[in-house]
Amino acid sequence: MPNYVKIEVLRMLRNRRYIIFVVGFPVVFYLIFSGIWGAQTDSGGVRAAVVLMVSMAAYGAIAACLMSTAVPWAQERQSGWLRQLRVTPLPGWAIIVTKLIASLLLVLPSMVLVCLAAVLTQGVRLPVGEWLVLIPALWIGAVPFAALGLLLGSLLPADAAQSAAMISTFGLAILGGLWFPVEIMPEAMKSVVHAMPSFSYADIGQHLVAGDAAPPSAVVTVVAWAAVLGTAAVFAYRRALARA
């Protein structure tokens, strides 16, 4: 299976769409936004350069999970590659586990690049202990989005998966307050925002960089979404295998 993870990661790193939309965009957005607003500080005294770093890392992670999982997986089901794997000794569960691991590994490039850009261009400095909590939290917190990617890829044909991944990424980014601060949204939308896994996911990161502990409600929200989407993804995956 390590070998399978390796080729899954390798193929995405050679995929132009992944490099541009998933790895490139978050860093470029970070550079633009932090160039304009980076010096401002919020009510808690945290610089916007730091807040934006968390937001863009979160956005990059969501994009990576959806783009690098849903679309290739839907294509593999349609193109017959899945059938080819089904006549090898590779067990069915190994395919979905590999996809999950590969998807989480593919989150790292954009996350690391956004953080590097923050450190290098905005002089962001966090205590070592905070980095060591922040990066793993953002990384593991991406599980619900990886599950969503697998779910879309199992349910939809390749073309539809492409659009669905796009819409989900932007929807989660906007409704999670990753692109615009939640404060400027209308009151009615705020309750929607607070139910979004992307909001809680980024919120955990924002608390960590402010030197606080992760709010339990946000952790519960992310875990609940991970459980729901994970279960749905497993069911959809089994159905997709049976139809391969």
Partner: peptide, 20 residues
Amino acid sequence: AVARGEIGAMLQSGELIGEL
């Protein structure tokens, strides 16, 4: 037989992974 690795098959259609 598939799980033991005793079968190899070339199915009628099937694309490869283009990036590899």
